[in-house]
Nucleic acid binder design. Structure first.
Lengths: 199, 199
DNA sequence: GCTCGACTTGGACGCTTGTCCAGGTTCCAC
DNA sequence: GTGGAACCTGGACAAGCGTCCAAGTCGAGC
């Protein structure tokens, strides 16, 4: 086995863990399955992690880690606010449909964290990161369309998060993208109106 | 142990199982924990169920079983459509806040079912039941307010389901009812408009 | 070239898991 | 009262789990 600093091994195992959870679910993500996915011996796991729960926590934090090249803005500068919002949301549905098992994994990890006292605080922190990320997107839209958000960015973000969460939960049950597209159509004007400050 | 027909024992165990999952999560809902909750010996479980997975499936179906006295309509006949929708949604948030662990349990069961081939079809069927239940509520509102739904009931139901799912997922992460109340305020006009047929 | 801390790992520990067998008990129909 | 179906259950099974120890190996700094 090539020698690596512990920090790097941790990241390898976290990424392997996320792959296993996406493929097999939380239930199948045993320590043995994770080290097999990472291609390392069993004992390596507890050299870099105190416990399996600790690794799960780091994996959950990893999914909201800032990575370069994200935050897409799939709309033109000439679009109306409604069209811009619609574009971003449809893009989200597209991405989701490509890898629903990944979002299912994130949901399972969230539920597991809430059930585990030492990890129960994480979902709240992850949500805060979500709000920050969505705020960035909203800012980008407003800047590109040269409009000024008429409400606090955080509150707008939380509105959007409710919408994407609704899409996520529904699509995880059925995989019915058509119904979700209809919801996007209905929700886009509402969100655009919220940004423009109407009530 | 008092003798009971197998069917009744099944229901006892299903209800005990739901209590355990709500309290301890899917992870802690072992066969032994469930029979302890139900107050029956271990071997009783496999007398009435072929497997633990079969019981989980029946428990998931149980949560959308029609029960008498449900489908509340907390709004007055003189209310506007927006107020009626708002009332129903705030009522939902209230109910959720009383027992969030129950909704978390339902989410965990859903995820588990999606991961288990023999149960993977259930979430879709449960969603169909949800749509039926919500349709009943929408019909009741329309009837009481003497308005006619301008779109297919099923589509309206699916819109509402996306909203409640968004509320559920968000509140399970943070327990932040305030943000959810704001979302209800923003979503109510949109849903009312959808019912009245506007676009 | 030696030292020492960092990294690696085979193998085992005690415990819990879902499942199942084989024998016991109850009670209704005749 | 006898037979048999339905219900009950103590106890065991193999398999799998997270965790840990103690010994091994490497490589940078002196």
């Amino acid at each position: 086995m090539t020698r690596k600093p512990a920090e790097e091994r941790r990241r390898d195992l976290v990424e392997a863990g996320l792959r296993v959870i996406a493929r097999e679910g939380m239930h199948g993500a045993t320590v043995r399955a994770i080290v097999a996915e990472a291609g390392v011996p069993l004992a390596t796991f507890h050299y870099v992690f105190d416990s399996r729960d600790q690794m799960i926590g780091e994996a959950y934090a990893y999914v909201v880690l800032p990575r370069v090249g994200e935050v897409p803005t799939p709309f033109s500068a000439s679009a109306s606010p409604v069209d811009a919002v619609r574009g971003v949301l449809h893009d989200w549905v597209d991405r989701f449909s490509e890898h629903p098992e990944y979002e299912l994994a994130v949901m399972e990890i969230m539920a597991y964290c809430r059930r585990t006292p030492s990890l129960a605080h994480l979902p709240g922190e992850v949500q805060t990161r979500y709000v920050e990320i969505v705020s960035t997107v909203i800012s980008a839209i407003c800047e590109q369309l040269e409009v000024e958000p008429q409400q606090p960015l955080d509150e707008l973000s939380q509105l959007v998060l409710h919408v994407t969460d609704g899409l996520t939960y529904c699509m995880l049950r059925t995989g019915d993208a058509a119904a979700s597209r209809r919801f996007v159509e209905a929700a886009a004007p509402m969100l655009a109106a919220a940004v423009m400050g109407e009530r």
